[in-house]
Structures are given as structure tokens and as C-alpha cells.
Amino acid sequence: MKADPAVQKRLLDLAEVDAELNRATHRRRTLPELAEIVTAETELRTRKDAVVAVETTLADLDRDAKRLDSEIDQVRAREERDRTLLNSADAKRSVDLQHELETLARRRGILEDESLELMERREAVEMDVQHARAQDGLAQEKLADAQRRRDEAFADLETIEARSGDRRKTVLAGLPTDLVTLYERIRSKGGTGAALLKARRCGACRLELDRIAMSKLKEAARDEVARCEECGAILVRTAESGL
């Protein structure tokens, strides 16, 4: 294949644009914010589970507190009833009522002690709830910050990709179809489509060409499209090539 040396040199502009696009694609896949977001999402789920757990414990304590309050009220109501009956009871009935009042008082004392202990536990759990909610809030802020930085990075990359895409179209417009087809075929295999031959070294694979390869390039016409024998890239020859 033949192409004017000036046209071949324009392949370097195309390769530069494609390298920039490749860097943008690589950066889009490997943004540190992406890993941060995954970690932050995991932490947030853990924090939310912790909130649910302590809130459930608090709700259970509140339910137990209501039950104890109800039992205490029932005992007090029973005591009040027995005291009223005691005023008009005969001697035998008075003894029974007095015994029942003593039993009720002991029962109320036990329930009140349980209620006091439960209140103390509730205070501790309520502090746990506040702490868990605070940690959940911090986790949400951390996730939101990572997402914001990711979105800003993506916006920058979109600008780079749009600018490079426009530049690529401009460069392609001045290149012959057959040369572009060869360039794209090389690039589709994961390599660099074209590179500068500088000081006997291929700019794509960075390997120095041996004497035989350099000799062939010296003998080749200037408009001959040369390629690196190692990586297959189109070698653009200039005064810097060492020929």
C-alpha cells in the first residue's frame, strides 16, 4: 500500500486522538470513586441494618414497658378495690383482704422494679439508636460525596470524549479510505494503529528495529506504508527515524 508521507504523518494525529480516547475509557472503568461507591453502599447497608436492629429492640422495650404499666395499673386497681371492701368487711373477710393486699403490694413492688430496670435499659438502647442513626447519616454523606465526585469525573470524561471525537472526525476526513481501513484493522486487534519510528525504535511496541529491518525501510519508497515486524503498527518515517 502506498500513501503520501504527509498523509501517513497525519496517522500520528489519529493515533494520538485514539490514545486519548483509550485513556478516557480506561479511566471511566477504573475511577477510584467507583470502588469507593461500592464500599460506601456496603457500609450504608450495614448501618441501616444496625438502625433497624436497635430500633426494633427499642420498640420491643416500649411494648414491654406498656405491658408492665398495664399490669401495675391492674394491681393498683385491685388494691384500691380491696381497700374499699376492707372498710365494710367482717373479721374473717378482713383477714383475707389484708393478706391479699400484702400479696398485691409485693407483686406491685416486683413489677415496679422490673419497670425501673426496663427504663434504664431503654435509656441505653435509645442512646444506641441515636448513635446508629448518626452513623447511618455519615454513611449516607460518604456515599453521596463519592457519587458526586464520580459524576464530576464522568462529566470531565464526557467533555474529553466529545472533543476527541470531533477531532477524530476531522483527522479521518483527510485520510484515504484504504489507509484508514488498514489502521483500524490493526487497532481492532488491540494494538496501536500507527506510531512514529524514532531513533530506530517503534513508538508502539517500544522495541528497537534490527539492522535488517532498518535496511528494508531505507530501501522502501517514501510513500510505501511500512509496518513494524514486531507489533504490526504502521511505522511513520520522519527525519527522526534514524534512517
Rank of each mutant, 00 (worst) to 15 (best):
residue 243 L to E: 07
residue 72 I to F: 00
residue 107 R to P: 04
residue 111 L to S: 02
residue 56 T to P: 08
residue 112 E to V: 01
residue 119 M to S: 15
residue 110 I to Y: 14
residue 227 R to G: 09
residue 95 V to K: 15
residue 137 G to P: 01
residue 128 D to I: 11
residue 51 V to S: 04
residue 163 R to I: 08
residue 176 P to F: 09
residue 167 R to H: 12
residue 27 R to P: 01
residue 151 D to K: 14
residue 200 R to I: 02
residue 113 D to T: 11
residue 234 I to L: 07
residue 92 K to Q: 11
residue 61 L to W: 02
residue 228 C to A: 05
residue 109 G to T: 00
residue 22 N to K: 13
residue 4 D to G: 01
residue 47 R to H: 05
residue 149 R to H: 13
residue 59 A to Y: 05
residue 26 H to Q: 06
residue 15 A to T: 01
residue 34 L to T: 05
residue 161 E to A: 07
residue 51 V to I: 01
residue 229 E to A: 10
residue 196 L to V: 03
residue 232 G to F: 07
residue 50 A to I: 04
residue 41 E to T: 11
residue 39 T to G: 06
residue 203 G to D: 02
residue 37 I to V: 10
residue 99 H to A: 14
residue 60 D to Y: 08
residue 158 E to V: 10
residue 165 G to M: 04
residue 149 R to D: 06
residue 99 H to P: 05
residue 68 L to G: 00
residue 228 C to Y: 03
residue 47 R to L: 09
residue 42 T to E: 10
residue 167 R to A: 10
residue 69 D to T: 12
residue 165 G to T: 00
residue 15 A to R: 03
residue 172 L to D: 00
residue 190 G to N: 09
residue 201 R to G: 09
residue 184 E to I: 06
residue 25 T to Y: 09
residue 82 D to P: 08
residue 113 D to Y: 13
residue 120 E to I: 15
residue 200 R to H: 09
residue 152 E to D: 07
residue 84 T to M: 15
residue 240 E to K: 15
residue 168 R to V: 04
residue 226 A to K: 05
residue 176 P to W: 13
residue 67 R to V: 02
residue 35 A to D: 06
residue 146 A to R: 05
residue 136 D to H: 15
residue 4 D to R: 04
residue 49 D to N: 03
residue 113 D to M: 11
residue 162 A to L: 06
residue 149 R to E: 10
residue 53 A to N: 04
residue 76 R to Q: 05
